[in-house]
Amino acid sequence: MKLSEFTRPDTLAAARRTLRELGPKGMVLAGGTALHFMQGKTPVTAVDITGLGLSYIKQKGNFFVIGAATPLSDIQRYRGPRWAMHEICRRISTHQIRNVSTIGGNIARVFPWADLPVVLLAMDARMVVYSGKEKEIPADEYFSSQPARLFRGGDLLTAVKIPVLKAHHGFGSVKVTRNAAAFSLATIAALLELKDGVIKSARVAAGSAIPFPQRLKPVEAALVGKEAVTAVFKEAAAAAGTAAKWVGGEGMSADYIRELAEVSIVDALERAAEFARGRAE
């Protein structure tokens, strides 16, 4: 992407105004790491939002609120009660990228291999979008198709709200890569609510091995009401084939990738169940 101009608005309202005026010739910049790889010959104006105070993590009531311009390394280092976001952030790219790349950049325009949409879908997060005033969009709606659709009119993602996990709730995420810094082959995230060893509710999401991150509802359905044990997890994971269109690549067949995803689903569920049990005592 070719930058011809660079602006640093000092308020959210000014940033939105500038983006509205620029239309397709404006581009939000936070970490900016993705901009270097975006196609397009038309020169654009970078609208730098890093001066708007959008880099923070705080616990507010039943939510952790993460500012949209918070770098992944801050999320990786943060610790709060029943915090689970650090695990996936540690697995994203390299130290230098995590220091710059932001949560907002990962989810405002979703690339198929992005990890955070998967985690936020499973976590039932809410995205805060500024359009003159702020409104919250639940993950299911936000990720129902390319979120960039929401920002065409100059609106901005300002924060992500992640529910604080309650007792008996557990979360697990798994990212499969060929080497530490590689793009994901399959990313799976699972949220389980247990009651007396039985799964009361489940949210399981996948990404990378499918065209766009999504929940795996047949897998979730196969879990609810059953015991949180490996045999049940395996049976549920077998529903992954009907839940999404698995795509091969890098010399791997679609069937292989699906099997990889199934194994990862079991792993993520085991982690989530362990989390739920461990913290319930």
Binding site: F6, S73, N99
Partner: peptide, 20 residues
């Protein structure tokens, strides 16, 4: 790799203007 505000950063993925 350079340090920007003490953090290791790829200088090839940072626009110079971002260093302001």
């Amino acid at each position: 790799t350079v340090l920007v505000d003490g953090r290791a950063t790829y200088a090839c993925l940072l626009y110079a203007m971002q260093a302001e």
